[in-house]
Each structure stands twice: as C-alpha cells, then as structure tokens.
C-alpha cells in the first residue's frame, strides 16, 4: 500500500512526508495526519475516561467503603464486602426494588412496546388523519418524565384527582389509592410511563416501516399471505435493525426508570427502584455513599448484559 502513495515534496515535511518506521517500512499516514488523529481520538478518549471510566471505577472502589461523603476516604473506610452482604441479606428494599425494575421491564416489553408497534402499523396504513393521530400519540414524548410524573400525579390523586372523581369514587367514598397503595401504585406509574413510551416506540417504528420496500408486501400479497402473515413473516424480519433499537430502548428505559417514581413519593412504599435506592442512599443528607455505590455497581452489572448483547450485534453487522 505504501508504495502507491506519492512522497511529498521535501519542502513541506509536515504536509505529506512519508515517514519511515523503525522496522524499515513506511507509515501510511503523514506525521501531520497522525497528530490530527491523535487529537481527534485523544480528546474523546480523555473525556470518556474522565467522565465515564473514572466515575465508574471510583464507584466500584467506593462500594467497598462506608464513606459518608465528609472528608477524604481513608483506609479505615474500607469495609470489604459488607455493603454487598447487607444489600443482599439485610436490606429489605433491595430485592423489592430489583423486582420492580424487572416488572418495569416486563411491562414495557410485553405491553407498552407492542402497543407502540401496533399503533405504528395502524398509522402506516395511510388511514385518514394519520398525521393527527401521530401527533396525538407523540405529544407525550416531548415531555420530560418529570413532567409526565406531575401530570399523572394530578390524575391519580385520591380525593382531588381526575380519575377517582370521574368515576364517582370520591362521592361514593370508595377511594382507590392509586399512588399510595403499595399493591397497585407501581402499575399506576407504569401506566404513566407507558403513556410516553408508546408514542416513542411508535414514532421510531413508523419511521422504520416507511423504509420497508413496498414490493415485499406486494410479493407477499401475490403469494396469498394475509395481513398478519405479511407482518410477522415479511415485514417484521426485514425490520430487524429497528427491532434491535426498540429492544435496546425498552431495556434502557426499564433500567433507568427513576423520574416518575421519584416525583410521586421519592420511591418508597412500593415504588422502590434500584436507581432510587442509589439516589436516596448516597445523595441527600443521608450520605451513605459507600452503600449507594454498591447498589450502583449492581445496576452497572445488570446494565452490562443488554449493552454487551447490543454491542456484539452492532459489531457483527458492521463486520
């Protein structure tokens, strides 16, 4: 390859000189190019290390301490695996929170995401007013989850809220405590989360559907496939890349679930989530930074699963 490159003029060594390597060959890139590359790779790398790896590693290290956020971490702060021991055996909220994250994931994966896909398929059929429906379903997506939380908090409020009043539950005195009853409040906020998630999935899927070659459908139709068969046997497989994106989004949404539960009641009384346990233990006056970090490490480990699956898939398609 090197031989095909014209050596630069001698008076501009920076611009195009073919640099000899120690092993007697020639670099493909000029010195200038290599410097540019170093800067271009180095800055993102530095940021990556500084903003992602350093906190991650510190988090892991802190998870072995009982540091309370005051002063510096000393040798006495290191307490081995105690945080983890307590988390798995003594801390009554860890497993409920873990379970709630799983329920969150299951709900999104089995209910909200399929509904979003269903809407996308319906709206893809050029029905009248499709633009109107699209904007209706997409509207919640532009809201932050915090705002979504506030909106639904007002709907769910036992005495003042819209839902209990609309169904006459306030008058009849049979209040449903949507957000206070630990048996149902998780599902209440999942409804709120889905309100947004459905629109999100719908838009992404709709964009994907638009790019499916219509010839495929026609061919399927010619072969005698009905609508359902066409979708599941032809369209869905063709949409594989989008499906992966949707799966990843759904998983991420479930893992980072935080905002709505925190708005509602700071994630207690049935709304415990891993992210919230991290926050409530390590931020705030409580300052159990070590214990909070241990929970964070667990969340990190859990997150690695889907990340690895996603990355390996992306890399496979890339190569």
């Amino acid at each position: 390859m090197a031989t095909s490159i014209t050596p630069a003029r001698e008076d501009s060594p920076e611009a195009g000189e073919l640099v000899p390597t120690r092993r007697g060959g020639y670099h493909v890139l000029t010195r200038y190019d290599r410097r540019v590359l170093m800067v271009m790779v180095g800055i993102p790398l530095l940021l990556d290390v500084l903003l992602i790896w350093w906190p991650t590693v510190s988090s892991i290290l802190l998870s072995f301490t009982n540091w309370d956020g005051v002063g510096s971490v000393t040798a006495q702060n290191f307490i081995g695996l105690k945080n983890y021991q307590f988390m798995f055996s003594g801390y009554t909220l860890f497993w409920p929170a873990f379970l709630h994250n799983i329920i969150w994931l299951a709900w999104l994966a089995l209910i909200a995401t399929p509904v979003g896909i269903f809407f996308a398929v319906l709206l893809d059929r050029d029905i009248r007013g499709t633009g109107f429906y699209q904007s209706v379903f997409f509207l919640p997506v532009v809201l932050s989850l915090v705002v979504v939380g506030f909106i639904w908090e007002l709907q769910f409020s036992p005495t003042e809220g819209f839902i209990n009043n609309a169904f006459g539950l306030v008058k009849s005195g049979k209040l449903i405590d949507w957000l206070g009853n630990p048996r149902i409040n998780l599902y209440s906020i999942l409804i709120a989360a889905s309100w947004r998630h459905v629109g999100y999935v719908m838009v992404i899927y709709l964009a994907g559907l638009k790019s499916v070659d219509p010839m495929l459908r026609e061919a399927a139709k010619v072969d005698g496939a009905n609508e359902i068969q066409t979708f599941f046997r032809v369209v869905f497989p063709v949409m594989a890349p989008i499906n992966v994106v949707i799966a990843v989004i759904t998983t991420i949404e479930a893992l980072r679930a935080f905002d709505i539960a925190f708005i509602v009641n700071q994630g207690k009384n049935g709304l415990e989530l891993l992210s919230i346990l991290i926050t409530n233990n390590s931020i705030s006056e409580a300052s159990l930074v070590g214990f909070g970090s241990a929970i964070a490490v667990i969340l990190l480990v859990i997150s690695l699963g889907p990340i690895i699956v996603f990355l390996s898939r992306v890399m496979r398609t890339a190569s």
């Binding site: 903003l51 906190p55 988090s59 802190l62 956020g69 390590s282 931020i283 909070g292 970090s293």
Partner: peptide, 12 residues
Amino acid sequence: LDLSRRDVLKIA
C-alpha cells in the same frame, strides 16, 4: 437530582 452514579461520584 436526576442522577446516575456518575453524578454521585462527581459530587462526592
């Protein structure tokens, strides 16, 4: 408070 463990660390 919309934070991650990174924020925790940053603050800490």
